[in-house]
């Protein structure tokens, strides 16, 4: 399996941040909730208010890896008739205006339904930089990886606190952009604390790869983003909190509050301890 010949956009973003000793802020939102127009405005808002990489979720009927917040957002988006095709059209329209690279988060069945080659080709043509498939472990991922390599897209593989060393190694070897470290056993959604296992997992990954590591699942506040940054993560991924904000804020305040939240989270992620 060949890797893309040159580092992709996402890797370049991480390299630039690293040079400035910054941590990447990676917000996630669900496409089509409350509607696709708001999704477009929200992505532009995040892009202009501190987001370094944007993660856009395709709504799916059976989101196994998601907690109640993102499940509910997906259900609402599907009820409005949001389709993968419409979301990819939106991405194609937006990417020329976006500074940050965009990753699409999708369950595997949506890719299969369109066909792996067709999906990846269309995603690449839309100007997206990569994709992340939460129900596709590396063992089942050869066909997707091959197609992504052909089209110059990064596949973001996830590692979990339960991944044994040999799996971490295999995933790290596959990684072209960054490793997505799932902070805790469980589904997406806000949690009271950052799991202590993050420190151990980060240390294990550091020994295996020089690729950046971003931490996600359960990070919803500036304090938690700060804590994760202090543990040495290269990126902080915040999903359910953004989705919740879009779902609950009054329509006229939505984008303003999202902008403020995004700036806060970016700032909180930057307070790095002195490196020894």
């Amino acid at each position: 399996m060949s890797s893309p010949a040159s580092p992709g956009r996402i890797a370049r973003v991480f390299a630039a941040l690293h040079a400035r000793r910054e941590v990447a802020f990676i917000p996630f939102i669900t496409a089509g909730d409350p509607d696709l127009e708001t999704t477009a405005e929200a992505l532009l808002t995040l892009d202009r208010n501190g987001a370094d990489v944007l993660e856009l979720g395709l709504p799916y009927s059976d989101p196994l890896a998601d907690g109640p917040t993102i499940q509910a957002a997906a259900t609402r988006a599907l009820a409005r008739g949001t389709t993968p095709g419409a979301v990819l059209d939106l991405v194609a329209r937006l990417t020329p205006e976006l500074r940050a690279p965009l990753i699409v988060f999708t369950y595997f069945n949506l890719i299969l339904a369109m066909g792996i080659e067709a999906f990846v080709g269309r995603l690449a043509a839309s100007g997206a930089s990569g994709l992340l498939v939460p129900d596709l472990p590396v063992e089942e991922g050869d066909a997707l990886q091959t197609a992504a390599n052909v089209h110059g897209l990064d596949v973001i593989w996830l590692v979990a606190p339960t991944s044994p060393p040999e799996r971490l190694r295999r995933i790290a070897e596959r990684t072209t952009a960054f490793v997505y470290l799932v902070s805790t056993t469980g589904v997406t959604g806000a949690r009271a604390e950052v799991a202590s296992s993050v420190r151990t997992s980060l240390a294990q990954l550091r020994a295996l790869t020089t690729r950046p590591v971003a931490v996600g699942f359960g990070i919803s506040t500036a304090e938690q983003a700060h804590a994760v940054a202090c543990l040495g993560a290269d990126g902080v991924i915040v999903g359910s909190a953004c989705v919740q904000l879009l779902a609950t804020a009054a329509p006229e305040e939505r984008l303003g509050r999202l902008a403020e939240f995004s700036r806060q989270l970016k700032e909180a992620s930057q307070t790095l301890p002195a490196k020894s």
Binding site: L64, F108, A160, V182
Partner: peptide, 10 residues
């Protein structure tokens, strides 16, 4: 096959 989140693989 096994199409599950990484957390369950082990």
């Amino acid at each position: 096959g096994q199409y599950v989140p990484e957390t369950l693989m082990s």
